[in-house]
Design a protein around this nucleic acid. Structure first.
Lengths: 350, 350
DNA sequence: TTGTATGCGTTATCAA
DNA sequence: TTGATAACGCATACAA
């Protein structure tokens, strides 16, 4: 026994008063235009030829019924989502929100949509979010993922094309967009060395972050050039920078280098509270050059990097991979030293 | 003549070498577990009773094949997307990225996903984005939408449940989350009045923004209390604040009030460049209390508002509406004066 | 408790 | 050029 289709119901309830009237389907349009659903589809997709006569009727009926195709049905049929996913550690961090802005701008320009997940700096949440998103999207951009390599592999194993931002990996299936943290940190260190600094405290970022490893690599290299660097466990938030600052001062440095501008701004707040003059007593550096770095009191010395470009490149790698089946590769974004007011000549207080 | 199903193909290509092996479907699992697809579905959804025996087999097969149900098929069948949409004017503006963070946090806590659109402050783009998203989501949160009422109505007409943040509307189908801009601006004005200010320039936000109208209402009221306010066309970006500042100074005010902190930080930059001392020669106020407001040089006097809470409330209204079919309503978020360093006694320079 | 069959809304294939 | 129909992958009503 065949169940009746709802639309074949004997009580059609024509134009029900105000109810949440069911969305029009292609069959409604077909009926209204007195053509077959296939013809409606052909008119609307515009791929196959249809006579002007019918085309008119269909268009009229479609707009009259406010018809728009059901994306879920299209996705099911075509296997394409027209959607990409982005996972970021913290949307409140201007670095990531600007990267995200870059991705969305690119995606929107090609009529793609963006699903976003904020992992709250939690590697497991990051992995869960990525795995869940993988079923909903054509491709995934993972920003500064902190998850272990094994979990990253698991994400890649879903078969969803993957772009990682600021994460090294040998997996040949994964595209990479990397910032030159090593070069940026080297320049910052040399800048401090030139100012006579010999002993600096470094507010460390998340240990799992690839970019953190790059920075530390540069710091070790600077050690050989005469800069003594003391690592202070910190984190990637403003609050982390705020809290780690006092510990950093206990090491009697003449300068504090922060993982990022976001962290540095937290540190700057604490330094002001403690009555430590910057750069009089202590110099301070950040990284990323977020828009507010320039405004902070003396203006933060940092390494600038084009954040929206990072997002745009992430989108482009994904797009080219999806459309042209290009092989994954790596693109590197440069960073440049920006000297502002938080760095000055070393004046050891001891 | 019936086309053969791909999975009934006579050349099954069992475990094809390395290719992008087709994702497992429920049928694959059913076959592997030697049960019917219905049973697989029952086990995985957990709604209907299944014997422990089969349940085991199914689970094993499913995880062995790394099976996850195809969301598109579920959406098509259930008519639910488990996804909501968020439209913001500018992701680079910390106010909006924090509101977005609030929404995503709420949505994630209930296993929903978030599609995000950045309209770049363009009302038409905003409308287009919302209309496109409407087909993909269960509900929509529009943050500070600037689109005309007619277009907003058009979005509501799609039938997609709608929450607007910081936008008034009489449409009874739309939920509202509103910040008390009027109260916040009143407090800021009174603060300036108490400091002896009589003539201030106001850097106006987007004319289409509801929140801008609320602010201007408060400014007019302050006019009756003796504060002369001169409107300076500006905008909602940092660059807008930067550029409008010089014009504002030409009106010889003793204080500048900005549409938002974001704008105020731009103004502060320009004031510093022009060598105008704050608050010595000019006092400055913002609105929102973004995290960087406290750090800017003297520390920005502003009205604070809980941004993540706004997002959370937006999510909750949507959620309750979707789950409990509650009627739309309005919730108002308070704002509180925060006096920092950018406001001081009026010292007319003229 | 389990299996069979059907439809969600769309597009592609085939026949006319 | 158009129309009928079969899939896409899943969850449910129904039969067993």
């Amino acid at each position: 026994m065949t169940r009746k289709l709802r639309r074949d119901s004997e009580t059609p309830a024509p134009d029900r008063a105000d109810g949440p009237s069911r969305r029009a389907t292609i069959l409604d349009v077909a009926r209204a235009a007195a053509v077959s659903p296939a013809t409606v589809s052909r008119v609307l997709t515009g791929r196959k030829p249809v006579s002007g006569e019918l085309s008119q009727r269909v268009r009229r009926a479609a707009s009259g019924l406010r018809y728009h195709p059901n994306p879920a049905a299209q996705v099911l049929l075509r296997g394409k989502h027209d959607t990409i996913g982005v996972v970021v550690p913290d949307l409140a961090n201007p670095f990531f929100s600007e990267v995200l802005k870059g991705v969305t701008a690119g995606a929107a320009s090609e009529d793609r949509q963006v699903l976003v997940v904020d992992s709250n700096e939690d590697p497991l949440e990051e992995h869960r979010g990525a795995m869940r998103l993988a079923r909903w999207v054509d491709g995934l951009v993972l920003c500064s993922p902190r998850m272990p390599a094994a979990l990253l592999k698991e994400v890649a194993d879903t078969g969803t094309p993957l772009v990682v931002v600021n994460r090294g990996t040998r997996d040949p299936r994964i595209d990479r967009v990397l910032v030159d943290y090593h070069g940026g940190m080297r320049d910052l260190c040399d800048h401090l060395i030139a100012l006579g600094h010999e002993r600096v405290a470094y507010l460390e970022g998340p240990v799992d972050a690839w970019s953190e490893q790059q920075r530390q690599r540069a710091l070790r290299a600077a050690g050989k050039r005469g800069l003594q660097v003391l690592g202070i466990p910190c984190g990637s938030g403003m609050a982390d920078g705020y809290q780690a600052t006092e510990t950093a001062l206990e090491t009697q440095p003449t300068a504090v280098m922060a993982f990022s501008d976001y962290v540095a701004l937290g540190a700057l707040t604490r330094l002001a509270e403690l009555g430590v003059s910057v750069p009089g007593e202590i110099s301070l550096t950040g990284f990323d050059d977020i828009p507010f770095a320039a405004l902070a009191g003396p203006g933060l010395t940092t390494a600038t990097v084009r954040k929206a470009q990072i997002g745009d490149l992430g989108w482009r790698q994904l797009h080219e991979r999806l459309e042209d089946h290009r092989k994954p590769g790596t693109v590197t974004v440069p960073s440049h030293l920006v000297v502002r007011g938080t760095t000055g000549w070393s004046r050891p207080s001891a």
